[in-house]
């Protein structure tokens, strides 16, 4: 792996973050109703894509059921470590059985 790709990725990611900080100082009040809801939209989309996306296609496998098991734990207010471990354990068990 060449370092060039890694440097471009790091510089690009920091530029995005800094742009948000600069914009945040100027437009914080006007953006407040939007930013309050943004995490809900982005986190749920991230969960869904990471749980069912296999590149550009959708794949339903042990991973999705494992994540669902983790979600049950999360709904019961389990801390993140527990949620992650439940999801990993359920996925691993399912694959062991299958």
């Amino acid at each position: 792996m060449s370092w060039t790709a890694l440097i471009v990725l790091s510089a690009g990611a920091y530029t995005c973050k800094l742009a948000g900080v600069v914009a945040g100082e100027r437009f914080a009040d006007r953006l407040a109703p939007v930013t309050a809801l943004l995490p809900a939209a982005l986190f749920s989309a991230l969960v869904l894509t990471m749980a069912v996306a296999d590149g550009p296609s959708l794949a339903v496998d042990a991973r999705l059921i494992g994540v669902a098991a983790g979600a049950l734990a999360a709904a019961r207010r389990a801390p993140m470590v527990v949620v992650v471990m439940v999801a990993m354990a359920a996925t691993a068990l399912l694959r062991l059985v299958a």
Binding site: V47, M50, R63, A71, V83, L93
Partner: peptide, 18 residues
């Protein structure tokens, strides 16, 4: 995959979403 490592990341985001 046998260790369920691919489920860890989406599960972490479930916890963040709650």
């Amino acid at each position: 995959g046998a260790w369920g490592l691919d489920a860890a990341f989406p599960a972490a985001f479930v916890a963040l979403l709650v």
